[in-house]
Nucleic acid binder design. Structure first.
Lengths: 150, 150
DNA sequence: GCTTGCCTTCGTGTAACACGAAGGCTTTAA
DNA sequence: TTAAAGCCTTCGTGTTACACGAAGGCAAGC
């Protein structure tokens, strides 16, 4: 049995957030001690992980609440729950693809900066490089004397 | 030259967001027509893409503003800018890893639901499966008669 | 008996917009 | 020529998912 503090350490959520979630009914298995202290067993911890996953992958709290309420109703709601997870899974995959693109973009930018710091002048004779710099990393060279005009 | 509406279509941002960004100075190359209409050239569109990338990968607007102001100051700020992108790149990679885990988690959940809908009972004699269900997908089977006790 | 840790409610603040209203200027089409 | 469409502004309110602090209370350990 874990307290809020421990649950926070385990899940990486804040105590505030955990109280917030339990109060909203997102952790149906949480219990209280005789002195009103929230007690999380392993199952509750796992609900927390589930909520964290859904939330961090972009599902609004209200939708998470809806999903959890469906879970509590048992088998008859399986089709609906399945549909929800399928839909949200697609959304999460879209976000993952975006995230990959963002990381790639940032990595290119970092490489350019590293080269400049290393004293290298980017190879502007390579049209591909030139295009990339001009169109994707104009910020790196904005107001720059490293890359002379033309 | 593009209007706000066109810029919105090109970048996938809303007109509201674009006005918000330009007003905050996040698109330094944007100009106004003689009648005060925002005009975006290709470079401005690319600033927008850059801002979008930074924002969507979790950088707060204020930090983006700081970065852009450094860009405007030219070469002397290259080390600082480089450091910022390096740090934020790491953050973005962390988020990417998390996103991967979330997608994997959701995919497992979806598979379980699909199997239930297909009439399959999960193989609880396999301890690994059992553990996964019990500890990672308790929600799927909460209040379920599909998976009998024990 | 004091500190520590948990609880509660209250109230305010935050980010990054969303949305609508009101009012004003232009350009274009009927 | 007048009406509609598209851009602009400022104003004001609403939203989400908490963060943070304060005040007050109960319970356990030293």
């Amino acid at each position: 049995m874990h307290t809020v503090k421990e649950a926070a350490q385990i899940t990486g959520l804040t105590e505030h957030a955990i109280r917030f979630y339990t109060d909203k009914g997102l952790v149906p298995t949480v219990r209280r001690s005789e002195h009103n202290v929230r007690l999380f067993d392993e199952q509750s911890i796992n609900w927390l992980f589930g909520v964290r996953c859904l939330k961090q992958s972009g599902m609004p709290i209200e939708a998470i609440k809806t999903y959890i309420d469906l879970c509590l109703q048992g088998d008859p709601t399986v089709p609906e729950r399945s549909a929800m997870m399928k839909k949200h899974g697609e959304e999460a995959r879209r976000q993952l693809e975006e995230a990959k693109r963002h990381v790639a973009h940032l990595e290119e930018k970092m490489l350019l900066y590293e080269e400049i710091l290393a004293g290298k002048t980017p190879d502007t004779t390579n049209p591909a490089t030139w295009e990339r710099m001009r169109y994707m990393h104009g910020d790196v060279f904005y107001a720059s004397t490293v890359l002379q005009e033309k």
